[in-house]
Design a binder for these strands. Structure first.
Length: 477
RNA sequence: CGGGGUGUAGCGCAGUUGGCAGCGCGCUGCGUUUGGGACGCAGAGGCCGGCGGUUCAAGUCCGCCCACCCCGACCA
């Protein structure tokens, strides 16, 4: 009965995570350390993430393009903080076609530099601005320690790179894309993220300011799930991205960049998953509804399959899979699709055909409580609504979990006590020293300083000096 | 790079004082099954991570390598 049980989340969250990914066939380990193969079911989730984001990028005026995988080493070196941040994790090609290369080529860890180079070439006038380009790409960062989806040597993402005439426009773009990510995370993935500012020590190498959408995973650790960066004029100056304004004055551009990666799939797994396996939010699920036909005899089979086809037609706008495998029992299939996180299952057997009804079973409500019989006539209307309800329920559950595990410690001792099982939302004076000390003591970092705090003040949780804003402190992936 | 662990069938593992290479799941075929992880019978599947050593004999003992996983430092 339970011989194929997953390790429970409570027992070992990390094992649970790895098992879910492999058994649900999202990804597998590649022959090279730290690399993963994204399997069709996992890639289908990524495709749904892509289309939801891509639509939002287009709606906000962006266009897609493709820049090269190889970047001359010298490009990386042009922005000081950038190369300092990335040099330890670069993959470098030194031989091509059997010849030692004149200049080593870096396999892109991110594309600010090569895109900056091209922008310098393309941008001449204020009339050319803004430039709003995104690319869907793979990048390589030679990480020490890797984990499927969360941190692999090679990963897939989108990276937006924009150039603007003024600092204000750059900042507006940075926050606009943070909004896009937030909207996507909340309304498509049902992941209740907190948008906020990164501290200076946590920001992107080369940025003036970085923003993040921060999410709480099922073990209460934090995951940076997407980032936007206001690059100021750092890259514009390093790559001479200049334009002539209306007054014929030569000025540097203001640039931004923003990215969301396959890591987000990890966020989805660890936000919604349970001891039965994956729980996919309906708007990202490759299969939204799985139909399991149940029958014994040939007559039952033909009646059941006829109804199944009818149901499929009624639900034509929904991503449906009919599990007509004959070599497995219904019980096996129920467990199998639950492991794979399909939001809604429809069971159709002889009893249902007789009643002109079907049994539905919600993935987000385990056991009998999530099951009910509904008439076939109401399916077309009800199923889309139920999928929305599942989305809302997943979002509400995850939000409650985060709130329940976020605390407001009275003092530093209390923070130290709770940080292994939750987040602390505390005043911070802004001193990098306090931040570093807290990290040293607790392994917790500032995940973000949330926007919209309004007028507030209190005392820094570490040093007790006056502070004007609160920050989330947590251990992170 | 430090600490820990593991390499034996597709996966998970066992293998005693050195003596024929095993178990469970999965896989293939046939039959019976099918409303919460079905069962029977018959099969297929191995350079025991690599190299070297000890021995009549090595999965097992010794040495050296390699790979991967987990925990740290680093990071989306």
């Amino acid at each position: 009965m339970n011989k194929n049980k997953l390790t429970s989340q409570e027992e070992n969250f990390s094992d649970w995570y790895n098992q879910v990914i492999q058994r649900a066939e999202l990804a597998d380990y590649a022959p090279v350390r730290g690399c993963m193969v994204v399997r069709p079911y996992g890639w289908a989730i990524w495709e749904n993430i892509q289309s939801a984001l891509d639509k939002r990028f287009k709606d906000t005026g962006h266009v897609n393009a493709a820049f090269p995988l190889f970047i001359p080493m010298s490009f990386l070196e042009k922005e000081k903080e950038h190369i300092e941040g990335f040099s330890p994790e670069l993959a470098v090609v030194t031989i091509g076609g059997g010849e030692v290369l004149e200049e080593p080529l870096v396999v892109r860890p991110t594309s600010e530099t090569i895109i900056g180079h091209m922008y310098a070439k393309w941008i001449k006038s204020y009339r050319d601005l803004p430039v709003l380009i995104n690319q869907w790409a793979n990048v390589v960062r030679w990480e020490m320690r890797t984990r499927l989806f969360l941190r692999t040597l090679e990963f897939y993402w989108q990276e937006g790179h924009t150039a603007h005439a003024t600092a204000e426009e750059g900042q507006i773009e940075t926050l606009k894309m943070l909004d896009v990510y937030t909207d996507f995370a909340v309304n498509v993935a049902a992941v209740p993220v907190i948008p906020g500012l990164k501290s200076q020590s946590e920001k992107f190498a080369g940025a003036v300011q970085s923003y993040t959408i921060e999410a709480m995973m099922g073990d209460t650790k934090a995951l940076q799930s997407g980032t936007t960066h206001n690059l100021g004029q750092n890259f514009a100056k390093a790559f001479d991205i200049q334009y002539l304004d209306q007054n014929n004055e030569l000025l540097y551009c203001w640039t931004t960049s923003w990215g969301l990666s396959t890591r987000f799939i990890g966020a989805v797994i660890m936000t919604h998953g349970d001891d039965q396996g994956l729980v996919l939010p309906p708007r990202l699920a490759p299969i939204q509804v799985v139909i399991v036909p149940i029958f014994r005899t040939d007559e039952e089979q033909s009646a059941v399959m006829e109804t199944t086809k009818k149901v499929e037609q009624l639900l034509s706008g929904i991503r449906i899979k009919i599990d007509d495998r004959t070599e497995m029992t219904p019980g096996f299939k129920f467990n199998d699709w639950e492991l794979r996180g399909v939001p809604l299952r429809i069971e159709i057997g002889p009893k249902d055909v007789e009643k002109n009804a079907v049994m539905i079973s919600r993935r987000d409500i385990p056991g009998r409580e999530g099951k009910s019989s509904i008439s076939i006539d109401s399916l077309e209307n009800r199923i889309p609504k139920i999928l929305d309800e599942i989305h809302d329920n997943l979002l509400a559950k995850a939000t409650k979990f985060r709130i329940d595990n976020t605390h407001d410690p009275k003092d530093y001792a209390e923070l130290k006590g709770l940080i292994n099982s939750g987040w602390a939302f505390s005043y911070w004076c802004g001193d990098a020293n306090c931040e570093a000390k807290i990290k040293e003591d607790t392994k917790a970092t500032i995940r973000c300083i949330p926007l919209d705090q309004g007028e507030t003040n209190g005392k820094c949780i570490y040093c007790g000096n006056s502070a004007k804003e609160k920050a989330y402190f947590a251990r992170a992936y």
